[in-house]
Nucleic acid binder design. Structure first.
Lengths: 196, 196
DNA sequence: GAAGACATGTAATTTGTTACATGATTTT
DNA sequence: AAAATCATGTAACAAATTACATGTCTTC
């Protein structure tokens, strides 16, 4: 007899959270994905294969409900007949809050780059250098994007037009990217010095 | 007709890589897990459920082979009758090298902490503060461990007793943890300032 | 002889992506 | 009228963990 403890699916909380950002705006699955792409993308994403089944499940649990899209906003959008919009219910809000109070699970993450660097002794140093240079370039590109988002957001936060929390997550992205850039640069010189 | 492009399983390369670190030492599944726990743990881990089936698959593909454990080393260990030890073959070495030459895939990673912080407006600021303080503590503990590993390793690298590459991955861990600590501290003061 | 480390393995489940099918609406 | 975007959804696959079962060997 096997006793399997089910780990809770976190996708549902991500959806509940996005829907609760502005409760006056019902959102479709597509809207939720777009919102995530513009905000939580670098630390949380959902694919269609996860999103749509979870939306159905949340409706069954009465944590969200199907509503008419708000016509006042986005006049010329949201006219697609296929569109289904959802709003969070009080049950959903309670569930979201309870989750927010619990300690966050830590997600270990894999880095294929570091795995390849770790086994670097099996190939020419030029290979590791190439991998790190490639990552350095991606990080530098990403940093420019993050920094422009951060400066826009900081202005809105200063004017009290946006809560602080989005800015905090952007800051996290910036600091981690900067650390990675710093590591790439240091590692490149260490490998080059080691070759001689 | 569905055409599914199979993404390659990376577990096999992690195993091939570990077995190639010292080809004179055949290792068991247990040894491989131990080695990973002491080296790649923070950017790459494997569970038994992945490891053992992959070992069988690698044997079938003749990328590794079952060998007698090396009795010279670890005299008083490795006597367990159940123990099966593996060594990498030339086929396996070729496969490892080919993978090392390819560009590394980037793994997006999830952070439940950042997701909770992002939705911080729905709870009292004290909740977000508690989450961040808890993470700060974990990071500080982890940093101490990483730093002692790095200083040990740096000595061995300087004496040319160990390749540079392990040190590079430890450095990556240190820089990322430091960035996270830095973010926690900054975020705590931003939230506290924002409350007033 | 108990505890703890060593050692292998599997079943069930969870989690997530990829690639598609399908069609509406908007923009060029 | 073509292209791009908006929009929902599923089948197949891939990846990974969790919780066991089973047993050996070493140390106290």
């Amino acid at each position: 007899m096997t006793k399997i403890i089910k780990k809770e699916n976190k996708t549902q909380y991500a959806i509940l959270g996005i829907l609760s950002l502005d409760t006056s705006k019902p959102m479709s699955g597509y809207d939720i994905r777009k919102t995530m792409a513009n905000s939580t993308q670098y630390f949380w994403q959902e694919s269609n294969g996860q999103l749509y089944p979870t939306l159905s499940k949340l409706v069954l649990n009465k944590e969200i409900k199907i509503t008419q899209p708000n016509k006042d906003s986005n006049k010329n959008l949201a006219n697609n007949k296929n569109k289904i919009t959802y709003a969070i219910t009080n049950t959903g809000k309670k569930k979201l809050t309870q989750w927010l109070l619990k300690e966050a699970d830590y997600y270990t993450h894999r880095s294929e780059l570091l795995l390849k660097v770790f086994f670097g002794q099996h190939v020419d140093p030029a290979v590791s250098i190439k991998h790190i240079q490639s990552r350095l370039k991606s990080c530098q590109d990403q940093l420019i994007i993050f920094e422009s988002i951060a400066s826009e957001t900081a202005k809105l936060v200063a004017k009290k037009k946006q809560p602080l929390y989005f800015l905090l997550t952007v800051n996290a992205g910036i600091k981690l990217i900067q650390a990675e850039i710093n590591w790439c640069e240091e590692s490149l010189s260490l490998i080059k010095a080691n070759k001689k």
